[in-house]
Design a protein around this nucleic acid. Sequence first.
DNA 1: TCCCATTATGTGTATATACACGCATAGGCG
DNA 2: CGCCTATGCGTGTATATACACATAATGGGA
Lengths: 149, 149
Amino acid sequence: MAGESDILQTTQCLCLASRRAARAITRQFDTALRPHGLRATQFSLLSGLALKGPQSIGALASLLGADRTTLTRNLAVAEARGLVSVAPGDDARARIARLTAEGRRVLQDALATWRAVQAGLTEEMGGEAADSLRRLSGGPSLLLAAGAS
Amino acid sequence: MAGESDILQTTQCLCLASRRAARAITRQFDTALRPHGLRATQFSLLSGLALKGPQSIGALASLLGADRTTLTRNLAVAEARGLVSVAPGDDARARIARLTAEGRRVLQDALATWRAVQAGLTEEMGGEAADSLRRLSGGPSLLLAAGAS
DNA sequence: TCCCATTATGTGTATATACACGCATAGGCG
DNA sequence: CGCCTATGCGTGTATATACACATAATGGGA
């Protein structure tokens, strides 16, 4: 084993790269969305519900690419702020999350801010890198696929 | 404002994309590194120290692209496990983190696992996407300027 | 020498993230 | 109907993340 030279390879680590990128991008969105009382995670949660309508926690977790139990906590935050309501569905096991009127309003208000940051970032990193990042994350098809009428 | 069509744009959200990608990639590394008692964050922390040698908390935070206070907590975890030691330096304000012998050993043991996951991911996403991701995480100074103290 | 802006850090709080484990319901099958 | 497995969730615990605020030391002037 060539000790030192092995370590040098870790400068190319894709995990660190992805996490650094996500942290930097998230900080930009968090800062910009602050006046709206939202963080990036909460914004994504609301937009996911707006796009695909009321859905179970598991479905939403899958949509956002997060663990189901993570979404349980994230939804609790949104619910405490009156942005989302959660109630049992036809299947008594499932709990269906849906936007409240307030949640819809906050999301609508935040959209202009989101658009501005999104546009700035896209220009900053270049459209090619942006497309590459979206492909990497599972592609926009995941969001559009199941019919966002 | 055309309500519905606005929401559709959020399917292209770079923040969600970067976070989804980071979560998915992190889960892969976390799972693989588990036998070594490390998570991706701790691995990155150790490799950062191995690469650049003993350094202050602020310098390490900048290197990893995370908030300084985040690194304080992350280092505490590594220290509790005896992987890292933290002590004041010449400047009494600063605290210098350095790998312990145990930390160096654990890192060395984990390297083979890291290489395997790194190689698998690179093939999976394609070398072009991997390069793009790395450029994104370290290239655009504007991205990191906000958070890197 | 003393003061003050700068620098380096820690803490309190809130949120985000996920694994292990346990509970409750749904659905098929004898 | 009664049982068994699969499905959908919540909780306990640990870690990761960062902002607001507070503390401590450095270094250069007045």
